[in-house]
Design a protein around this nucleic acid. Structure first.
Lengths: 244, 244
DNA sequence: CCAAAAGTGTTTGATTTACACCCATGG
DNA sequence: CCATGGGTGTAAATCAAACACTTTTGG
């Protein structure tokens, strides 16, 4: 079908070739709180979708790279100042009509943050809060634009990367126990994991954990050794696999 | 550092918030020919980088979705009409200054095509040809813009996905033998694989191959059974792993 | 018959799984 | 002492690598 299109002209500066696009970044910020995978949502203050829940995000500014814009929006909209444990580009969404105002291409980013992080909405968003991802995926608070699809892709990416990378530790605070890390995997995958085998596996993976020497005692039970994120040189073979 | 910026204003339609961007798609088209992983390059006809090698690509048009634009550019610039075996979004690149003319965000796509495909350059590109990926990665023909980095990301993605998906078959023609598929894996990974174990593994993976019943004899040796791409329902566990 | 490539069987070692068991603390 | 969770040992099952061997063609 492209052969009978009369517009096969050389690429140049004809405005028909590069119509004005707006470029935004949207953020899928995930954390694990109370043993549940949660996603950061804001309440939109303006049309379209005013009052509706949405992923945090905003326009990319003239001098900014995409990742830079994502980091700025994260700080601006949520007050999560501490460097997030992990920020990576997710995918871009540019379906015509996804924003009723104009042609917008959104470059979505995935952020994994420790559960401690408490958002206090900055200037832009009327409200920012963590909500259980499972509920949002089920449609509980409906999301603006095509953010439901973006969230789905982000959760899927997180689940997949946990399997063959050291990213699970990105959900943990600076110091954490093996049980903390196991809670992360269980929350993200939604499956129970054997504590004994989990312990052996993560402590036996070179580069994943760095022991701090300290230990902690929470409630009854033997104190657990504390660890920090390791250099995680070795990604393969898979760290762990969700239950068969 | 974002806290002392005096521009924390609500997002709206202030043109400073959404300056004009151009949005393009760039294509990393990979194939396996003569047991070597190759990438499709075009020669740029215009400034900037006139005469320089580059990845095929072009501007996204007003009514088009991103994947649509990628498919159109593929057909226009290379004449590869047959539906490619696989097309997926790779990543977006928007560093300020990556295009000297204006602010351009490029949404790169990854295309895996059978080795048969012979490009005959369409209207736009002055020339299109397949070049060994290893040479381009080494800098042999220097690429325009930041296309070297995009290519690196594309090859890395292809290598990774071959391991845990059925994508290897995307490089094969409609009907192919197990040896053809093995040649693909060896070319992409650059490692030799045991023919016996490879055979057992791929024929034993449900959904990967559909036997056609036919067989082929090339040169001396026992004829090989022919297969078609299967539904590939099961992606995990990893199909294969590059040599340890 | 011989060479060459396709395909099967078998052996060996690594990895995963399941679970018995010991360790260290609070109450 | 006992409950609770942290951590180690071990045996069975599963999987992967190496390779001997059989099958089916062309010359």
């Amino acid at each position: 079908m492209p052969s009978d299109v009369p517009t096969r002209r050389p690429p140049g500066y004809d405005p028909r070739d590069h119509p004005p696009f707006a470029v935004t970044v949207d953020l899928v910020v995930l954390t694990v709180r109370d043993d549940v995978l949660q996603v950061l949502l804001v309440r939109r203050g303006e049309e379209p979708f005013a009052g509706c829940a949405a992923l945090p995000g905003g326009f990319v500014r003239p001098g900014e790279d995409l990742a830079e814009a994502a980091a700025r929006e994260l700080a601006e909209e949520t007050g999560l100042h501490a460097a997030p444990a992990h920020l990576e580009q997710l995918a871009s969404y540019g379906r015509p009509g996804r924003d009723p105002r104009m042609r917008v291409v959104s470059v979505a980013h995935l952020v994994l943050a420790p559960g401690l992080a408490e958002p206090h909405p900055g200037g832009d968003a009327a409200g920012a809060r963590f909500v259980a991802a499972s509920e949002v995926l089920a449609g509980a608070p409906a999301l603006a634009f095509d953010h439901a699809g973006i969230l789905r892709d982000g959760v899927e990416r997180a689940r997949a990367k946990l399997e063959y990378s050291a990213l699970g530790t990105a959900f943990c605070a600076d110091e954490f126990t093996v049980a903390d890390l196991r809670a992360v995997y269980q929350a993200v995958w939604g499956v129970p994991l054997d504590p004994r085998n989990f312990h052996r596996k993560v402590t036996g993976t070179p580069g994943l954990l760095t022991p701090t020497g300290g230990s902690t005692a929470r409630g009854g039970g033997r104190p657990a050794a504390l660890y920090r994120r390791g250099p995680a040189a070795q990604l393969w073979p898979p760290i762990l696999r969700p239950a068969s």
